[in-house]
């Protein structure tokens, strides 16, 4: 470990420690914003782990997330919650592997379209199973978990995702991904098993998203399939990750935080025109921050170093 890495690690641990203190503020409002931020940080960081280096835009987040939610909802009355979390993680990874096997051998655009349809397909499948086998089972998740617990769980998961991301960045797999992202043909010629690498990374991403869905299920109490599989979620995650920047591990993080706060301000102040104001905000973001927050920051740093004003 280089001294620079040690420094980054120390800073990261301190930041996590500070973030973990939030629930002690006792203010439910800040905690609920914290949960939202933590959720999007985990989802968009794990999304960027796969989509960042490969440039494959996955719109499957809602599918994995919904899968995790529905697994918890269906099993909560029979199986301990911790076991359900494990099942969700495994199910997410397995589903990602299946989807990856079917689509990641194809070129990018087929993958995008397939993942977009995936959430809807899984939702219909779950509804069908529920309708024909489960009955009303799988609608209620009554636990004693509070927002504080969910926040800490998500924070721990975020730590895990950052560690994985850091490890992948240093590993052969990460190196292979960067080559694939730059030119897949070259990668194949170098002897990289491109399909296997992509599937592996997609599995990590799918596993994490399913786990987030499972962790959040107790927050909703009453699970409706159309809410568990909200297609909007997939797009939000992509927008936030891109706003932050996908080249750095912490890129999505600096996208999620301003985005969530912006959403919050709009929702609080324009209750009747939320969607309209949001649309205008999107336009402004694309116009003013085309390279993401990270790009902007790096630009500013470069200027600063050059001794500019």
């Amino acid at each position: 470990m280089t001294s620079r890495e040690t420094r980054t690690l120390v800073i990261a641990v301190i930041l996590f420690g500070l973030a973990a203190l939030l629930p002690f503020s006792g203010n439910g409002y800040y905690i609920s914003i914290g949960v939202t931020i933590a959720m999007y940080v985990v989802l968009s960081t794990s999304w960027a782990l796969f989509s960042g280096p490969t440039h494959y835009i996955s719109l499957a987040t809602a599918a994995f997330y919904g899968l995790g939610t529905m697994i918890v909802a269906t099993g909560i009355e029979m199986v301990p919650y911790v076991v359900l979390l494990l099942i969700s993680a495994v199910a997410g990874a397995v589903m990602a592997a299946l989807v990856g096997l079917a689509t990641l051998r194809l070129s990018g655009v087929y993958f995008v379209i397939f993942t977009l349809g995936l959430a809807e397909m899984i939702r219909q499948l779950v509804s069908w199973l529920q309708n024909n086998l489960g009955g009303s089972r799988g609608l209620y998740v009554l636990t004693d978990l509070t927002e504080e617990h969910i926040y800490w769980e998500l924070l721990a998961l975020a730590g895990f995702v950052f560690l994985i991301g850091w490890w992948i960045g240093r590993s052969r797999l990460g190196f292979a991904m960067r080559i694939i992202g730059n030119d897949e043909t070259v990668a194949a010629h170098c002897g990289i098993n491109t399909a296997r690498s992509k599937i592996l990374l997609f599995m990590v991403s799918g596993m994490v998203a399913a786990l987030v869905g499972a962790l959040l299920a107790p927050r909703w109490t009453y699970i409706e399939p159309n809410i568990a599989f909200s297609p909007l979620l997939s797009f939000e995650v992509v927008i936030m990750a891109l706003l932050g920047g996908t080249k750095r591990l912490w890129g999505p993080l600096v996208g999620v935080i301003p985005f969530t706060i912006l959403l919050e301000v709009i929702e609080a102040n324009y209750p009747s025109q939320t969607i309209l104001v949001l649309g205008i905000a999107f336009l402004l973001i694309v116009y003013l921050v085309p390279h993401g927050v990270v790009g902007r920051l790096e630009q500013s740093f470069a200027k600063f170093r050059k001794g500019g004003n």
């Binding site: 409002y29 905690i31 609920s32 914003i33 909703w220 809410i227 929702e267 939320t274």
Partner: peptide, 18 residues
């Protein structure tokens, strides 16, 4: 407040009110 038929938004708005 408008919850946009989204429980996450709803929880935040309810917390904001409280």
């Amino acid at each position: 407040y408008d919850d946009q038929t989204n429980p996450g938004v709803h929880i935040k708005a309810a917390q904001r009110l409280a």
